[in-house]
Design a binder for these strands. Structure first.
Length: 269
DNA sequence: CGGTTATGGTCAT
DNA sequence: TGACCCTAACCGC
């Protein structure tokens, strides 16, 4: 489930449900040995930087860092809900309980640890203070394809396989364009589009990228055919006609991930 | 019941 | 580039 919008949505939900309240912290599965370090502390707020979630606790300056990886999920429910499956971390304020399953990271950090981690991350389109030039500096000096750069969390934070495919399609950028062949204009347009698409994703809790003029005949497709949960142009539509030009959508395995694009709408420069 | 799949990332070679 | 980590849903037998 997790591209950047998912984590920002989660941060808002966790803050709304548990913010400024003392919470119980346990590890039903047993694999978060430090869960007790924040047990009984006041949960200040949760926030996200790209795909990383930070749950900050009171004066002790402790923060739980969570990365969902490919399979991780949070489920917020009632406090009296039974533990089902592999729950790494449960927080509980007596009314609600939130269960974390399958994360790649769930660890307690101090302030310096949070700073170190965030220093490795590129600007996040969902951060109003983020500076796209910070990413441009790296992109414009790299010979790697933009398809690789845009998913490199040190370059840009929060873009995953769906937003990558969709934003490059919407901006008609060939995914194989080398970073140093991309124009500054193209990058600024990609960034601006990411900003609005991802903000929409936070609100809608899903990824929808298809413009109204292309959507009437496909509305409902995602729910019917594909569990990823949104209306998209090219993601997981290999072999199907492009919603804009009708050409068959292309797919290839690239660095361990599936890459989708339209060869006609996204021609080489 | 076993194999496959998934919106991610790290580490070794 | 490949091995491996994390979990649950789904599919075919």
């Amino acid at each position: 489930m997790p591209e950047g919008h998912t984590l920002h949505r989660l941060a808002l939900d966790l803050t709304e449900t548990f913010g400024h309240r003392p919470i119980g912290s346990t590890t039903p599965q047993g694999r978060f040995a430090d869960a007790g370090m924040v047990d009984g502390l006041v949960l200040d707020r949760a926030y996200a930087h790209g795909k990383h979630l930070f749950v900050a606790f009171d004066a002790r300056e402790l923060t739980v860092h969570v990365h969902l990886g490919l399979f991780g999920r949070w489920a917020i429910g009632r406090s009296d809900a039974d533990v089902v499956g592999q729950v790494r971390w449960r927080i509980d304020d007596g009314r609600h309980a939130a269960d974390l399953r399958g994360p790649t990271a769930c660890e307690v950090l101090d302030g310096a640890g949070v700073d170190r981690l965030r220093a490795r991350l590129g600007p996040d389109p969902l951060d109003p203070l983020a500076n796209p030039d910070q990413a441009w500096l790296r992109i414009s000096r790299s010979r790697a394809p933009i398809a690789a750069l845009i998913m490199d969390q040190a370059v840009v934070s929060g873009v995953g396989n769906i937003y990558r495919a969709e934003v490059l399609f919407r901006q008609r950028v060939d995914p194989w364009t080398a970073g140093n062949d991309l124009s500054r204009r193209q990058w600024i347009d990609v960034w601006a589009d990411l900003t609005s698409l991802m903000a929409d994703g936070v609100e809608a809790r899903r990824i929808d990228t298809v413009r109204p003029e292309h959507s009437p005949e496909v509305t409902g497709r995602a729910e019917r055919d594909d569990p990823h949960g949104g209306e998209v142009y090219v993601y997981r539509r290999a072999g199907q006609p492009c919603l804009v030009c009708g050409v068959s959508v292309a797919e290839t395995a690239f660095r361990g991930r599936n890459l989708f694009w339209c060869p006609r709408c996204q021609p080489p420069r």
